[in-house]
Design a binder for these strands. Structure first.
Length: 591
RNA sequence: GGGGGCGUGGUGAAGCCAGGAGUUCACGCCGGCCUGUCAAGCCGGAGGUCGCGGGUUCAAAUCCCGUCGUCCCCGCCA
């Protein structure tokens, strides 16, 4: 028997018992005589005492121990001598006096330290992820994730949902993100795609009468990596028949609240607040506003419409707007403010005007000479400007000005280092977004139901979809929609989206066919488990809550994947590498 | 596709702007001392082609060019 208890269970009540415990030597403090070993297992840490005057035969083994040796120890739990208790340790009231110490496995010196005293380069952590995961932080993240997922399963199972698996080798329907492709051996030149989501399959399950479906599904999108994006990630995917938006939101709220409670100990106050897409853009310059702080966007178009400052006045005259935020008391050196202007340009603004509120209520700014005192007053009032506040103004079309200010708002207002959770539904998304070339691009997948087909046909640029996002602390957790269940409507939507009938038939014909067999009205949602857990754990990126993530270029330093394959493997698939791929092989020698 | 930060013994940092012997600090590692420590302490020691390649220079960790890796951001992510 390797153990009869976890070390985390050892408290004052366990004193007087004899236990068998097993784990790793997290730290060793050899006093020359008595030695202390902090033994860590999956439950926590306990101090083991090896005392030569009590058990002389343990002297040699005590001397031989190194960090991260894997040990089995039989010993007596006893209260620590008065004055030596460790209040920082949950098990700090007791210690285990060793009778026997068995080395189950030795360990080489570690490539990095497992305590949190030094922040190790992430590539090294990933290369030795199995050691990194022993660290308290990562161990806690894994546990939190497990608890959240368990809560989700419990909630949906109790609510009558059926867990159904869908294929991970599916038909490629190039749209949206790039597909991850898998070559077929039986049909050379043909490829499977890994699913970007189980979207169409879960809709087929609705046609199939499953009624309430869910799945914790792995999804794959081959786009550039970010702190909150990996090539593969995990979503809770769900769908229900004879359902509408209100029921979906209520279900998701209940699920998320249970997941939050499982990790944080306390659920959410329901229902969550809601805001339309239009309001979110207007007030916060984002479709995923972070409501943990204010700093709302104010509109100054009226002030500048008649002002002497022609650059702004002409923008307003041309149908644009002048919008602004107050980032509060901030460094107002020229170089710092120039940096903000650069950032604004990076975000797509033509320029940015800063203003600093002075002692006498006047405004210091490169454009101050164009402003009358009444105009300065109006600006200060609109932005509640106090002494020392820095105001940032952008003139552009409404959408772009809002977007730029929304980002600057995050740059300067986003809090860090506290535990607040600010959940928000964003509803009434538009069917189309205005692309950079001025054209319309679908904002969602083409199976999203419009609020009305007539509206979509008559004024597509303002048409609203029955689509909704869940946002927490400025992170888009997930999105969902009411789906189209009428094949005629689906056909028409394809048409309005600019997908020709032949094209629609070729890509989605199998799906359109399915809709013709008595499809129930249905709706659903999907949200990112990685993102949710990373927010709940206050982690800055989702890699910290994924056991084996990849680097920004999709590389896994632990296994050195992706890697070249043999000529034979390629030949079986009918694949030959192009010259530029051969060059890439030389540039990235196999690890 | 683009912008920025970083790459220095096993780990983390300083040194780089302003070129002058691989210099420094913390942790770890190895050896010694130490019988109540808990990020133990004290003494001693080992360990580095300054990511790689090229250039400038009498001289390059330091300046320049390229390249690889990594992180953040813009674009992209129906």
């Amino acid at each position: 028997m390797y153990r009869d208890t976890y070390v985390g269970n050892l408290d004052a009540e366990a004193a007087g018992t004899t236990v068998t415990i097993a784990g790793w030597a997290a730290r060793i403090r050899d006093q020359g005589g008595v030695a202390f070993v902090d033994l860590r297992d999956a439950s926590g840490l306990v101090q083991v005492v090896i005392a030569p005057d009590e058990v002389p035969e343990l002297v040699d083994v005590a001397r031989s121990l190194k960090r991260e040796y894997c040990l089995k120890i039989i010993g007596d739990v006893r209260a620590r001598p008065p004055g030596t208790e460790n209040l920082d340790l949950p098990t700090g009231a007791v210690e285990v006096a060793a009778r026997t110490v068995e080395v189950l496995s030795t360990a080489q010196p570690l490539p990095f330290q497992l305590d949190d005293s030094i922040e190790t380069d992430e590539q090294v952590r990933l290369q030795y992820r199995y050691l990194d995961l022993r660290r308290d932080r990562m161990s806690r993240n894994l546990k939190a994730r497990s608890r959240a997922v368990a809560a989700i399963h419990n909630n949906l199972d109790a609510a009558g949902f059926m867990e159904v698996e869908t294929p991970t080798l599916i038909k490629s329907t190039p749209e949206g993100a790039r597909d991850v492709l898998v070559p077929s051996r039986h049909r050379q030149g043909h490829f499977y795609a890994l699913p970007q989501s189980p979207q169409l399959f879960k809709q087929l399950l609705m046609v199939a009468g499953v009624d309430r479906y869910y799945q914790i599904a792995r999804c794959y999108r081959d786009e550039d990596f970010r702190a909150d994006r990996q090539i593969e990630f995990t979503q809770l995917d769900l769908e229900g028949s004879f359902w509408g938006q209100d029921e979906v939101l209520a279900t998701i709220e209940s699920v998320v609240s249970d997941a939050v409670a499982a990790v944080r100990g306390e659920g959410l106050s329901l229902p969550l607040s809601q805001m339309t897409y239009a309001e979110a853009i207007d007030r916060f310059g984002s479709d995923k506003p972070d409501l943990r702080f204010g700093m709302e966007i104010a509109d100054l178009s009226d002030v500048f419409a008649a002002s002497e400052f022609n650059a702004f006045a002409s923008v307003v005259e041309g149908g644009g707007v002048v919008r602004a935020i107050n980032i509060g008391e901030s460094e107002s050196s020229r170089s710092h403010l120039d940096g903000i202007i650069e950032r604004a340009k990076e975000l797509g603004a033509k320029g940015l005007v800063w203003m600093v509120v002075e002692q006498d209520g006047t405004i210091r700014s490169p454009v101050a000479k164009f402003l009358e005192s009444g105009e300065m007053d109006a600006i200060r009032q609109a932005l509640s400007g106090e002494l020392g506040d820095v105001l940032l103004l952008v003139a552009d079309e409404h959408r772009r000005a809002s977007h730029v200010l929304g980002q600057l708002r995050l740059d300067h207002g986003r809090p860090d280092g506290h535990d607040d959770l600010s959940f928000l539904w964003v509803t009434d998304f538009p069917v189309f977004e205005v692309a950079d070339d001025g054209g319309l691009a679908p904002a969602h997948h083409p199976f999203t139901a419009p609020r009305s087909v007539e509206e979509l046909r008559d004024s597509p640029e303002t048409a609203v979809a029955k689509a909704y996002d869940l946002v927490v602390n400025g992170v888009e957790l997930g999105s969902g929609s009411v789906r189209i269940h009428d094949p005629a409507v689906q056909q028409e939507v394809f048409d309005i989206l600019g997908i020709a009938p032949e094209e629609a038939h070729q890509r989605f014909g199998w799906f359109l066919e399915a809709l013709r067999y008595g499809t129930p009205p249905h709706a659903g949602f999907a949200f990112g488990i990685d993102r949710l857990v990373s927010v709940l754990q206050n982690e800055p990126n989702i890699r910290e809550v994924m056991p084996f993530p990849k680097t920004q270029t999709g590389f896994d330093p632990l296994t050195s994947s992706p890697s070249p394959v043999t000529e034979d493997q390629l030949a079986e698939l009918g694949i030959e590498l192009r010259p530029d791929a051969e060059e890439s092989l030389e540039a990235h020698p196999a690890g």
